[in-house]
Design a protein around this nucleic acid. Structure first.
Lengths: 200, 200
DNA sequence: TATGTTTTGGATCAGATGATCTAAAATGTG
DNA sequence: CACATTTTAGATCATCTGATCCAAAACATA
């Protein structure tokens, strides 16, 4: 019927994601994107639309490959307390292993994209909220089963974990030091009566 | 001797700071800066140098008017535990009162400015570290005086407070909701055996 | 008031930016 | 093999970007 596409969609989205992740949205030009994706500007626009649409696709690609799968996997854990600890451990390992202080694309984008773009703003908030919701569900379940000792309000505990992981992701971009990230996570877990993180 | 400047340095730096704060560094053009500062491009360049230098000045202006003074003020408090709580309270009130979800210029900038600019990077990290150091000093002093109960490692406790306030500042930009910010702060304080925040 | 220094206003530079256009190339189907 | 359809490649558009230049204006000093 028609000429098939030459490029591998996963590969080119990986490349675009990497640019946005490392440099941010505004600091990445369409020409640089096209070059790193090994396509021409025309092909890129034909396949993905304008820069904003490509950014949205790159963000979805990022989330599909990390956050969403991780939450689903830990959600299935029989131990909600261990799930929280393992989630923090994973976040830290991912932060330290990329070697170039990129942090988390979702968190980076949440700070960079202003409220002048309501659609994207709402999408980012909804996606961030899945983290808060995950923590809350874990705490509620863990307390119901007696695995997590009672203490401060479960909503507040979830909010603390939520703020802490955001802060850890910020630090992962600006000061990617193991002691710092692990120390914050250790304290968050211990202070809520949760088990320590597993060894990496 | 020479023609005096017509503009008020504090006022124009306020204007520049506001643009960088609301929109970020990359998304703010020099023309927009000059217009909001009510000066011409030439005057702006003459007075402040290039865009990067103006950004640096705006950041210093921001820090002089907020973070540095606040830390110094709370540092002088006779109660280190209350100082931590009051610092969190102030950060949240500042976050909620600006009405447009700008968050904290220092945190926003720390995430946006890449390691491709080592000087600025180092400056941002040093400035951020003053927050961590403030928390650590408060905890150590409070434990020495018996005001703060012993518990987890003081370094880790400071790291948790540090990560939490960064996370709260991220949330202040993307979801400026009182329950969310205060909940995270309440949990952080309670979990470390610190007093609750004062009423606002 | 004359002098000399600095700021100011407006125009302008060279290059980058996001986006589009046209035509050629490529390939599954009839 | 020829057609229809889509992707490519490269050039190009209008605009914006950061930065600079030059002459005119403003003022403290002598």
């Amino acid at each position: 019927m028609a000429r098939p596409r030459k490029f591998d969609e996963t590969a080119v989205l990986d490349a675009a994601m990497d640019r946005f992740w490392t440099q941010g949205y505004e600091a990445t030009s369409t020409r640089e994107l096209a070059e790193s994706m090994r396509m021409t500007l025309a092909s890129m626009h034909n396949a993905f639309g304008d820069k904003r649409a490509l950014f949205r696709r790159s963000l979805e690609h990022y989330l599909d490959g990390s956050l969403r799968a991780r939450i689903a996997r830990h959600e299935a854990s029989p131990s909600p307390a261990a799930a929280v600890a393992a989630f923090l451990r994973e976040s830290i390992e991912r932060s330290l292993s990329d070697g170039c202080g990129r942090g988390c694309l979702l968190v980076n984008s949440a700070l960079e994209i202003t409220s002048a773009d309501p659609d994207l703003r709402e999408f980012l908030n909804a996606e961030l909220s899945t983290i808060e919701d995950f923590f809350r569900r874990c705490i509620v379940k863990g307390r119901q089963s007696g695995e997590i000792p009672p203490g401060i309000d479960a909503d507040d505990a979830a909010r603390l974990l939520f703020a802490s992981i955001l802060g850890i992701r910020v630090l992962a971009r600006v000061r990617p030091e193991r002691n710092l990230l692990e120390g914050a996570a250790r304290a968050a877990l211990a202070s809520l009566g949760l088990p320590p993180m597993p060894d990496s």
